[in-house]
Amino acid sequence: MSHSLQGKVAVIAGGGKNLGALIARQFAEAGVAGIAIHYNSDASRADAEHTAAELKAGGTEAILFQGDLSVVGNNVELFERTVQHFGRADIAVNTAGLVIKKPILEVTEDDYDRSFDVNSKAAFFFIQQAGRSLADGGKIVTIVSSLLAAYTPFYAVYPGSKAPVEHYTRAASKEFGARGISVNAIGPGPMDTPFFYGQETAESTAYHSTAAALSAYSKKGLTDIEDIAPIVRFLVTDGWWITGQTIFANGGYTTR
Results as ranks from 00 to 15, higher is better:
Gly15Met: 04
Ala212Tyr: 13
Ile12His: 07
Phe196Lys: 01
Ile228Phe: 03
Arg170Asp: 02
Pro159Arg: 09
Glu226Asp: 11
Tyr197Leu: 09
Asn184Ser: 02
Gly239Gln: 09
Val141Ser: 01
Glu80Phe: 00
Ala156Gln: 04
Ala171Ile: 14
Gln66Ile: 03
Ala172Ser: 07
Gly131Trp: 05
Ser146Leu: 06
Pro159Glu: 08
Ala48Cys: 04
Gly221Ile: 09
Arg45Thr: 12
Ala62Trp: 04
Gln129Glu: 15
Ser44Met: 04
Tyr112Leu: 12
Gln129Ile: 04
Ala123Asn: 08
Glu106Tyr: 10
Ile91Gln: 01
Val107Lys: 07
Gln128Ile: 01
Phe116Ile: 00
Gly20Tyr: 00
Gly252Leu: 08
Pro159Met: 09
Arg25Trp: 04
Lys174Trp: 03
Gly251Ser: 10
Gln199Gly: 08
Ser70Cys: 01
Ala21Gln: 08
Ala48Arg: 05
Thr237Pro: 02
Gly187Pro: 02
Ile91Ala: 03
Ala123His: 07
Leu214Asn: 14
Glu80Ser: 13
Asp68Met: 01
Thr95Leu: 09
Ala206Tyr: 05
Gly31Pro: 05
Ile12Cys: 09
His85Ile: 06
Gly7Thr: 00
Ile143His: 04
Asp110Asn: 15
Ala149Arg: 10
Thr152Gln: 14
Ala46Thr: 15
Gly244Pro: 06
Ala53Arg: 15
Asp136Phe: 09
Pro230Gln: 11
Asn40Gly: 07
Gly7Trp: 00
Ile23Asn: 01
Thr223His: 02
Asp224Phe: 05
Thr60Glu: 11
Thr108Gln: 07
Glu109Ala: 14
Arg132Ala: 13
Thr201Ser: 14
His50Cys: 10
Ala62His: 08
Asp113Lys: 12
Arg233Ala: 15
Lys101Trp: 11
Ser70Gln: 01
Gln66Gly: 03
Arg233Tyr: 13
Asn75Leu: 02
Ala216Ser: 13
Ser145Met: 06
Ile228Val: 10
Asp111Ser: 07
Ile247Asp: 04
Gly137Arg: 05
Glu49Val: 13
Val93Asp: 03
Asn18Asp: 13
Asp111Lys: 04
Arg132Pro: 00
Ser133Arg: 05
Asp42Lys: 09
Tyr151Gly: 11
Glu29Pro: 01
Ala178Asn: 13
Phe125Lys: 05
Lys56His: 14
Lys220Phe: 14
Ser120Ile: 11
Ala13Cys: 14
Ile37Phe: 00
Gly15Ala: 06
Asn75Ser: 12
Ser115Tyr: 02
Ile143Val: 12
Thr60Ile: 12
